[in-house]
Design a binder for these strands. Structure first.
Lengths: 220, 220
DNA sequence: TAGATTGTTAATCGATTAACAATC
DNA sequence: TAGATTGTTAATCGATTAACAATC
């Protein structure tokens, strides 16, 4: 008898959950006990039915006429995302971006702890970055096994990305947060999530180009 | 008589263009003159019809049986994105993330030049970050007008985001690349593009949680 | 009670994929 | 010529939005 574990939540819904979480935390701080989808939607610029559908993926149920319990909703979202217990991760590539991520305090909120960095540059190996040690990438496998770390943040130059990923995979890494522009090849039981800054910039600059051109034509 | 300027390209297509651009540049470097959608698709893990639809938004046309001219395609994508001439931008908030972005060389490829940073912290005002000056945020308006900068990268703490954005808007900024988790309120003639790291991490960690749970059940 | 809100089903919308004629 | 490839139209798929009964 097969359970329906094959069914996963829509990615767009998952992507919106952190925004709900942030709002809910501020509501809790303000002493609010319950909140409606209408209210959430107004704050975030979404229609209420979309909010309701999104929240439903966490398994939470609300009360008609009342709304959702703020605290329960926070718990449900965090549990769904796996942000209840801190997840440890290694940073691979301590250049300016890796450096910045290691120092970013905001990840705590997302249950993510970047516990160490790895690099191949002797200049930086052994240094402390925001209080965290930087090790030689040669030690990655050993450290990953010892500390039972299964998530890696990839911030190496593009040319080194696939090689670094291969080493990470051999060390038992199951999830890679990929900040490089490279399309990584990994086995199906490993998860890769790409942070495509260039994609984001493409949207911004193409829209800006479009906007400025339009205004120019209107003035003419 | 109305032109159909209202029609804009699908956002998903725009978001994929930088990946095509990157591949095409490496093909050009390898001496390739022409390329087919099938080939591009194989490299990037996309079906050929999707590649063709995406490329069509740039206005480029290919030759049946031959494919697309690599150099022409590069030019067309860059023109569409507005990445032909360098776009200057200011960084608002020179914390660890702003610092890292100011030092990131990769933005050159995207026609983006981060020419200066702004902050309110006297400790960092006047410093040079990766060769670029950090000014007081009080000087933002004056500098933006003088240097005719219309794009800003927002990397301040969440609590300061809307206020900083307001100042930027008053200074004539038309496009904000928003790295904060705040939903900014801006007039309709200003473009905001959100870089939601938390959304990306949400996908990664929820999928990892799901994967690990699934494996646990299989072992049981 | 009346009205606001939830949960769910149906309709709409937009993007992806498939099909296929045109063409070099 | 034959076959690969483009450009375009149609079919499919999935997400968003609308409609509405259930409910506190």
């Amino acid at each position: 008898m097969f359970e329906d574990y094959g069914k996963i939540a829509p990615l767009p819904s998952i992507r919106r959950l952190p925004a709900y979480l942030r709002l809910l935390q501020s509501l809790r701080l303000a002493g609010r006990d319950v909140v409606s989808c209408t209210h959430i939607g107004k704050e975030l610029g979404l229609v209420s039915t979309q909010v309701r559908k999104d929240l439903a993926v966490t398994g939470i149920v609300g009360k008609p006429k009342v709304g959702y319990n703020v605290a329960a909703l926070i718990t449900a979202i965090e549990a769904f995302l796996g942000w209840t217990s801190a997840q440890d991760a290694f940073v691979v590539g301590v250049g300016s971006l890796g450096h910045a991520l290691m120092g970013y305090q905001g990840f705590q909120e997302y249950g993510l702890r970047l516990v160490a960095g790895f690099d191949i540059d002797p200049e930086i190996i052994g240094a402390k970055v925001h209080g965290k040690e930087v090790y030689s990438f040669d030690q990655f496998g050993e450290m990953a096994k010892r500390m039972n770390v299964c998530m890696g943040v990839l911030t190496v130059p593009a040319a080194a990305a696939q090689h670094a990923a291969n080493v990470m995979l051999r060390s038992g890494i199951r999830a890679i947060w990929n900040y490089t522009p490279v399309t990584l090849e990994v086995p199906p039981n490993v998860i890769v999530e790409d942070v495509k800054l260039s994609a984001s910039l493409a949207v911004l600059s193409s829209r800006l180009t479009d906007l400025l051109r339009r205004e120019k034509m209107e003035r003419a």
